[in-house]
Design a protein around this nucleic acid. Structure first.
Length: 760
DNA sequence: GTAGGGTTAG
């Protein structure tokens, strides 16, 4: 509908254009119009001939107008013609004539009123809007109206707002809107101005006007058009102006709902997705239930969006409630709905429940709408099975897929299975599956490549991995950042830093852009290898590439630097962190504390602890470990024991094996073996498992006091607990037991492990 | 629906 057609339908104008037919009138006009029916009313006939005459007079160019006759026709009885007549005359002229006529009226009309000017000006605008290059003409007219202070009526403003908006003169549009009489500000004109305000990012102005419309008893409430573009605007983001917060979105949707205006199916789903993405699941659910209750159209997609959000929050209870609600309201679940539930169960390692849902979805007796599982659902299940080590069942499910029409295994299916066999160390089976892909004409992807490369790396076959990568490359497949990161990390882990660096260079050379993870991995590898200059070089490259250092990467560097006692550099790093707005975390503080503790700087360690607490960070078992270690190294086992007692009761951080090890080692070294033994008991009582280090410390202490029986007891316990001795254990025991002629016991000890290995 | 990464104490 054109703007003109819309105007024609609105009431005030119709009153001008049509004969008066008010039933309460007993005037002659009323009778005449009645008697004239069904023929055109006389009034209109009169108007028509009058208008035709005036228009005729206006046909020559302005200088040739018959001003006398014109004046006579227009103003002969001393009063101006009706607004309706002027409007209709003007609308029959072309743009330039209309403008001339308007100027003539302004100059000559004897009793000039705002309404007359406004109405005629509106007619000029209307003419302009239907001519070529209407945009420029309207803008010109707008400027003119300001220059000459011509008041704009609602119709004129309605025409001008979109035109001003189009060229970004949104402030002017708002001024024009504000000048309209409040009682005329109908929904249509409000829609126009709000739309422009939103378009140009003037969110606050828009929301303010919207609020007026959304009031409970608003005179001009929102309509479906309002809803349409407001909901649309709520979905867009990152455009000019401030962001509309999720809370505002929720509030608006609710208020629209109170006026019976709801987002359409698609927008509802998108709004819900947006809310869910930002953690506003409760709001998303509220909106969904609102629409359901108002009997709006809700389809599975909207419910699926909420189900996804609930799944992410691990809220299985409400997932079930929503599905029950869907059933009640006859909202048919689709494959995606089942996929979400199955995926949730698989990711929570509840694979058997996932399989139950799967069996029910198309075969269950109580389901009115059977849904065929699709490839994605099969793949989800196969991945779920593989992730809990049931890759054989995964294989069976793949066979079952082949039996279902249109559900052939694809690349993802194979990738999941290959990863499954990799994770349990069955590299050969993984490789066989890869070969099977070629036979089955399922193309491998870069993920297939990376999965196999990772499997080989994780099982100590880095060279095979490189070889395989090269083969794939000669087959035309390209690696990506993940491929290189996998290999780089693998080489770092075996301390082959040069090879790692070489791969990084290769990655750049072949035009594969490293991502942040690639940089982080190399930085970590270099730091751990003590090559801090190389590490900081890579840091500079990371920054050049536009990535940012995060707390973890700084921690890696700080740890590396403190291991090399480069304290000044550590402080430099801390300063840089602050400058870059990266807050030190618990691990940063723990790293610092353990460095100062190890180097005997107890006071500095305490200072770090104070700072950490003042930052609101909660000490962990590692924090206590560092502190206890510091006191032990200072020879103050009493204070160490005091902290040990405090940590479990006051701070509720239970000590772990490492804490006990520190204390037992220190006590044994100070010949307080009895106390160490009592800690061993405490470990048993508290269910903290001793490690090889624990036993080694204990054996050293016991040897000093020659407490053989106790040593034998611990040797038995090590065997029972399958706690493997290391070379230190063997050194202590061999030396001690040989010296006292108990080599038989030592032999049995070693044999015990052989037995446990063979039985396993 | 599938792949890669880095941090602290003995």
């Amino acid at each position: 509908m054109t703007i003109y057609a819309a105007a024609k339908q609105s009431k005030p104008l119709r009153r001008f254009l049509k004969p008066q037919t008010h039933k309460t009138h007993s005037s002659s006009l009323f009778l005449r119009s009645l008697s004239a029916e069904p023929n055109p009313p006389l009034q209109e006939e009169d108007d028509e001939s009058y208008i035709a005459q005036v228009v005729q007079l206006l046909q020559p160019s302005e200088k040739d107008w018959n001003f006398k006759q014109l004046h006579h026709l227009l103003f002969s009885d001393g009063s101006n013609p009706s607004l309706s007549r002027l409007f209709r005359i003007t609308r029959r002229l072309n743009y330039s004539k209309a403008l001339d006529f308007f100027d003539y009226l302004r100059a000559n009309s004897p009793n000039q009123e705002d309404s007359e000017l406004s109405s005629t000006f509106h007619a000029v605008l209307d003419v302009a809007s239907r001519e070529p290059s209407s945009q420029n003409k309207l803008l010109e007219l707008y400027r003119r109206s300001k220059e000459l202070s011509i008041p704009l009526n609602i119709k004129a403003t309605t025409l001008l707002i979109p035109c001003l908006g189009r060229v970004g003169m949104v402030d002017e549009a708002l001024i024009a809107f504000n000048k309209i009489d409040p009682s005329c500000k109908n929904t249509h004109v409000r829609n126009l101005i709000i739309r422009e305000l939103l378009k140009w990012g003037q969110v606050d102005d828009a929301l303010h006007l919207l609020d007026e419309m959304l009031e409970a008893k608003a005179e001009f409430p929102p309509d479906s058009v309002t809803g349409d573009f407001v909901f649309g605007a709520l979905l867009k983001r990152g455009r000019a102006g401030r962001q509309i917060s999720e809370d505002e979105i929720f509030g608006l949707v609710v208020k629209f709902g109170k006026h019976g205006v709801f987002p359409d199916k698609l927008k509802l789903t998108q709004l819900i997705m947006k809310l869910c993405r930002n953690g506003k699941i409760d709001d998303a659910l509220d909106i969904l239930y609102d629409v359901m209750k108002s009997e709006g159209v809700v389809e599975a997609a909207s419910c699926n969006a909420v189900l996804t959000g609930l799944g992410r929050k691990n809220d299985f209870k409400r997932m079930n409630l929503l599905m029950a609600e869907m059933k009640e309201r006859n909202i048919q679940p689709d494959a995606v709905t089942f996929g979400i539930v199955i995926n949730f169960l698989c990711k929570s390692r509840r694979v058997d429940e996932a399989l139950e849902v799967f069996e029910k979805m198309n075969g269950g007796e109580n389901d009115r709408f059977p849904v065929e599982p699709d490839v994605i659902i099969y793949n989800t299940l196969i991945d779920g099975l593989c992730k809990v080590g049931r890759q054989e069942e995964g294989l069976q499910l793949m066979e079952r897929m082949r039996l279902q029409n249109g559900c052939a295994p694809n690349t993802v299916t194979y990738n999941c299975l290959i990863d499954g066999f990799n994770k349990v160390g069955e590299i050969e089976r993984a490789r066989e599956l890869f070969d099977e892909m070629e036979k089955e004409k399922v193309p491998p992807s870069v993920i297939t490549l990376n999965t196999l490369v990772d499997g080989m790396c994780k099982h100590g076959r880095i060279n095979s991995a490189v070889e395989f990568f090269n083969e794939m490359q000669s087959d035309g497949m390209k690696g990506n950042a993940t491929t290189y990161t996998t290999l780089i990390s693998a080489f770092c882990n075996v301390n082959n830093i040069n090879k790692a660096m070489q791969l990084f260079d290769e990655m750049l050379r072949v035009g594969c852009t490293p991502d942040a993870i690639a940089y982080y991995s190399l930085i970590s590898g270099l730091s751990r290898a003590g090559r801090l200059d190389d590490a900081s070089f890579v840091v500079s490259k990371l920054k050049e590439a536009g990535f940012r250092m995060d707390a973890v990467s700084y921690n890696v560097l700080i740890n590396g630097l403190s291991k090399k006692s480069k304290v000044e550099k550590v402080y430099e790093m801390l300063k840089e962190m602050e400058e870059n707005g990266v807050k030190p975390d618990v691990i940063t503080y723990n790293t610092l504390m353990s460095y100062f503790s190890k180097t005997g700087r107890l006071e500095t360690a305490h200072e770090v602890l104070r700072k950490m607490l003042s930052e609101g960070l909660v000490p962990t078992v590692v924090t206590y470990g560092a502190l206890i270690h510091a006191y032990c190294l200072n020879g103050d086992t009493n204070e160490a024991m005091k902290i040990f007692r405090e940590m479990s009761c006051a701070s509720k951080v239970p000590p772990n094996t490492v804490i006990f090890n520190i204390l037992i080692d220190s006590l044994c070294k100070r010949s307080e073996v009895e106390l160490a033994l009592s800690l061993m008991d405490e470990m048993r009582v508290k269910g903290v498992k001793p490690s090889t280090t624990t036993y080694n410390a204990m054996f050293k202490g016991l040897r000093e006091k020659n407490l053989l029986d106790k040593a034998f007891k611990f040797m038995d316990r090590m065997v029972v607990q399958a706690c493997n001795p290391d070379y230190i254990t063997m050194e202590i025991l061999t030396e001690w037991l040989s010296a006292v002629g108990e080599t038989e016991k030592l032999r049995n000890f070693v044999k015990g492990y052989e037995v446990s290995v063979s039985s396993a």
